Simulated scan of single mutants.
Amino acid sequence: MINELKIATGLRNGKTYLKESFYTRPFKLADVGLDRHDPALYLTLMSSSPGILDGDVYDIQVQLAAHTRLQLQTQSYQRIFQMEQEARQTMQVMLEDGAMLSYIPHPLVPHKNAVFKAHNKITVGAGSRLLWGEIVTCGRKLSGEVFQFKLLRNLTEIYQNGRLLLKDNQVMAPALIPPEVMGQLEGHTHQATFIYVDTTPGANLFEENIRALIPGDIVCGVTRAAGPAVVARMLAQGGEQLYDCLQRIATAIWTNEIVHYTNTSEHER
């Protein structure tokens, strides 16, 4: 089943509004903004489907006009059901000059024999900011389905002016590469990735401040990319634990609170 979602923002009197939206079942959009004085747009991506099914193809397109701000949220954990073939998702994102997008979705839960391939292609303009997250679980842990999915691949590419800024290619195939071995998850069952891009000239990417917001019960590494980006990779034992952490980091950057955190902050591990 082909499932489509298209979102385009616009700017009117200094406020971001939903200029265009198109979606097919099972998608639905909800405006969850609470403060009418807030110039940003807050949308929740909802779905009437219990999860991603065998043969599903998700096509998502998000375009932010210049100087607009969008926080795109998800409704709940995304289940990837048992499959005989595969499911695929393509997400194309365009940030025009000065735009800002925050997208921290709920964790993916791949069921036994699930095969899921995702490709995120993101283009950023000058002076734009991107907050991007991803959380992958081991499966239905309480049901005994720990790393029993077949394949999970998530490729994220970020471009500016046709030049590749960052490429993150995550591939998990537990039957071929045991997750518990050295160099993989090493006993952890959940992993998260947080990407922060800021193409403003001379921008502070807050590597140390991001690290300070990650609690001590999460194993992490924060790396400055070759381009104007920072990547944080995290390992833990619970999806909610990682989701709360990514939300905390994204909120601190979104609200500009992160500039107040230093290496001696109480948030430091």
Rank of each mutant, 00 (worst) to 15 (best):
Q191M: 15
Q191I: 12
Q191L: 15
A192I: 02
T193D: 08
F194Y: 15
I195L: 11
Y196G: 03
V197Q: 04
D198W: 00
D198P: 04
D198M: 04
D198H: 01
D198C: 00
D198Q: 03
T199N: 05
T199Q: 01
T200E: 14
T200K: 11
P201L: 10
G202Y: 08
A203D: 11
L205H: 03
F206S: 00
F206C: 07
E207C: 12
E208W: 09
E208V: 00
I210G: 04
A212N: 11
A212R: 08
L213K: 04
L213V: 08
I214Y: 03
P215Y: 01
P215K: 01
G216K: 13
I218H: 01
I218K: 00
I218M: 01
T223S: 15
T223W: 08
T223A: 15
R224G: 07
R224T: 13
A225S: 12
G227C: 08
P228N: 09
A229W: 01
A229D: 03
V230S: 04
V230W: 01
V231H: 06
V231T: 14
V231E: 03
A232P: 03
R233D: 08
R233P: 05
R233Y: 07
L235T: 09
L235P: 07
A236Y: 04
Q237D: 12
Q237K: 11
G239D: 05
E240F: 06
E240W: 11
Q241A: 06
Q241T: 12
Q241F: 00
L242F: 03
Y243H: 15
Y243T: 05
L246I: 09
L246H: 02
Q247G: 14
Q247K: 13
Q247P: 02
I249M: 07
I249A: 03
T251I: 07
T251R: 14
T251H: 14
I253E: 05
T255F: 04
N256C: 08
N256W: 03
